[in-house]
Protein backbone atom coordinates (compact mmCIF):
# COMPACT_ATOMS: atom_id res chain seq x y z
CA UNK A 1 0.00 0.00 0.00
CA UNK A 2 1.30 3.39 -1.00
CA UNK A 3 1.64 6.47 1.14
CA UNK A 4 -0.56 9.52 0.53
CA UNK A 5 2.15 11.44 -1.31
CA UNK A 6 2.52 8.69 -3.92
CA UNK A 7 -1.27 8.47 -4.26
CA UNK A 8 -1.45 12.21 -4.83
CA UNK A 9 1.27 12.11 -7.48
CA UNK A 10 -0.41 9.20 -9.27
CA UNK A 11 -3.67 11.13 -9.43
CA UNK A 12 -1.86 14.22 -10.71
CA UNK A 13 -0.30 12.13 -13.47
CA UNK A 14 -3.84 11.04 -14.41
CA UNK A 15 -4.94 14.66 -14.60
CA UNK A 16 -6.68 14.95 -11.22
CA UNK A 17 -5.90 17.45 -8.44
CA UNK A 18 -6.66 15.73 -5.16
CA UNK A 19 -6.89 17.18 -1.67
CA UNK A 20 -7.59 15.47 1.61
CA UNK A 21 -10.19 16.51 4.11
CA UNK A 22 -10.52 15.89 7.82
CA UNK A 23 -13.62 14.47 9.50
CA UNK A 24 -14.82 18.03 10.17
CA UNK A 25 -14.34 19.04 6.55
CA UNK A 26 -11.05 20.95 6.68
CA UNK A 27 -8.95 20.71 3.49
CA UNK A 28 -5.41 19.37 3.91
CA UNK A 29 -2.41 19.93 1.64
CA UNK A 30 0.31 18.66 1.24
CA UNK A 31 -1.14 15.15 1.67
CA UNK A 32 -0.50 13.57 5.06
CA UNK A 33 -0.94 10.26 6.85
CA UNK A 34 -3.01 12.00 9.55
CA UNK A 35 -4.78 15.29 10.14
CA UNK A 36 -2.38 18.12 11.07
CA UNK A 37 -2.86 19.31 14.62
CA UNK A 38 -4.97 16.40 15.81
CA UNK A 39 -3.20 13.35 14.42
CA UNK A 40 -6.55 11.83 13.56
CA UNK A 41 -6.50 9.35 10.70
CA UNK A 42 -9.24 8.73 8.23
CA UNK A 43 -8.36 11.58 5.90
CA UNK A 44 -10.61 11.42 2.87
CA UNK A 45 -9.52 12.19 -0.68
CA UNK A 46 -11.61 14.48 -2.83
CA UNK A 47 -11.11 16.15 -6.17
CA UNK A 48 -10.48 19.89 -5.90
CA UNK A 49 -12.24 22.33 -8.21
CA UNK A 50 -8.88 23.88 -9.08
CA UNK A 51 -10.29 27.34 -8.53
CA UNK A 52 -8.43 29.64 -6.22
CA UNK A 53 -7.25 33.14 -5.37
CA UNK A 54 -3.73 34.58 -5.37
CA UNK A 55 -2.61 35.07 -1.74
CA UNK A 56 0.83 36.47 -2.55
CA UNK A 57 3.19 36.65 -5.50
CA UNK A 58 6.75 37.46 -6.49
CA UNK A 59 8.45 37.89 -9.87
CA UNK A 60 11.88 36.33 -9.95
CA UNK A 61 14.14 38.43 -12.17
CA UNK A 62 16.59 36.83 -14.55
CA UNK A 63 19.39 38.12 -16.70
CA UNK A 64 17.95 39.43 -20.00
CA UNK A 65 17.00 38.19 -22.49
CA UNK A 66 15.45 35.65 -20.09
CA UNK A 67 12.03 36.78 -18.92
CA UNK A 68 11.15 36.98 -15.23
CA UNK A 69 8.91 34.22 -13.90
CA UNK A 70 6.40 34.34 -11.07
CA UNK A 71 6.03 32.31 -7.91
CA UNK A 72 2.61 32.53 -6.28
CA UNK A 73 0.81 31.27 -3.22
CA UNK A 74 -2.73 30.24 -4.14
CA UNK A 75 -5.61 29.82 -1.74
CA UNK A 76 -7.75 27.05 -3.23
CA UNK A 77 -11.48 27.60 -2.88
CA UNK A 78 -11.68 24.43 -0.76
CA UNK A 79 -9.33 25.97 1.82
CA UNK A 80 -5.80 24.66 1.26
CA UNK A 81 -2.88 26.88 0.19
CA UNK A 82 -0.06 25.90 -2.13
CA UNK A 83 2.85 27.33 -4.09
CA UNK A 84 2.63 27.45 -7.86
CA UNK A 85 3.07 29.60 -10.97
CA UNK A 86 0.55 31.49 -13.06
CA UNK A 87 1.21 31.02 -16.78
CA UNK A 88 0.42 33.32 -19.71
CA UNK A 89 0.47 36.52 -17.70
CA UNK A 90 2.58 39.69 -17.85
CA UNK A 91 4.39 40.96 -14.72
CA UNK A 92 2.40 44.16 -14.34
CA UNK A 93 -1.00 42.49 -14.64
CA UNK A 94 -0.75 39.83 -11.94
CA UNK A 95 -2.18 40.89 -8.58
CA UNK A 96 -2.92 39.52 -5.14
CA UNK A 97 -6.62 38.67 -4.93
CA UNK A 98 -6.99 37.62 -8.58
CA UNK A 99 -8.91 34.44 -9.28
CA UNK A 100 -7.02 31.61 -10.91
CA UNK A 101 -7.73 28.13 -12.26
CA UNK A 102 -5.47 25.12 -12.00
CA UNK A 103 -4.31 22.96 -14.86
CA UNK A 104 -1.85 20.12 -14.99
CA UNK A 105 1.10 20.47 -17.31
CA UNK A 106 2.09 16.98 -18.40
CA UNK A 107 4.55 18.08 -21.10
CA UNK A 108 7.61 17.51 -18.92
CA UNK A 109 9.05 14.45 -17.22
CA UNK A 110 6.91 14.99 -14.12
CA UNK A 111 3.40 16.45 -14.18
CA UNK A 112 3.30 19.97 -12.70
CA UNK A 113 0.33 21.78 -11.20
CA UNK A 114 0.09 25.27 -12.73
CA UNK A 115 -2.50 28.05 -12.85
CA UNK A 116 -4.00 30.49 -15.35
CA UNK A 117 -6.09 33.54 -14.68
CA UNK A 118 -9.69 32.41 -14.28
CA UNK A 119 -11.88 32.88 -17.32
CA UNK A 120 -13.95 36.01 -16.91
CA UNK A 121 -11.55 37.39 -14.29
CA UNK A 122 -9.64 40.54 -15.16
Amino acid sequence: MKGPEAEWREALAEGRLLLQRTADGKAVFPPRVAAPGTGEGGLEWFEASGRGTIYSLTWVQRRPPQEPYNVVLVDLDEGARLMSRVEDVAPDTLEIGQEVEAYIDRSGEEPVLLFRLARGAS
Binding site: S56, L57, V60, V71, R85, V112
Partner: peptide, 19 residues
Amino acid sequence: WDEPYKPLFPLSSYALAAA
Protein backbone atom coordinates in the same frame (compact mmCIF):
# COMPACT_ATOMS: atom_id res chain seq x y z
CA TRP B 1 6.06 20.81 -3.08
CA ASP B 2 7.62 24.22 -3.67
CA GLU B 3 10.74 23.26 -5.64
CA PRO B 4 9.03 22.77 -9.05
CA TYR B 5 8.21 26.50 -9.08
CA LYS B 6 11.83 27.52 -8.44
CA PRO B 7 11.47 30.12 -5.71
CA LEU B 8 14.94 31.53 -4.96
CA PHE B 9 15.88 29.87 -1.69
CA PRO B 10 15.38 31.47 0.72
CA LEU B 11 14.86 34.91 -0.86
CA SER B 12 11.56 34.43 -2.72
CA SER B 13 9.80 33.26 0.44
CA TYR B 14 10.66 36.56 2.13
CA ALA B 15 9.50 38.33 -1.04
CA LEU B 16 6.14 36.57 -0.75
CA ALA B 17 5.86 37.74 2.87
CA ALA B 18 6.84 41.29 1.92
CA ALA B 19 4.38 41.39 -0.98
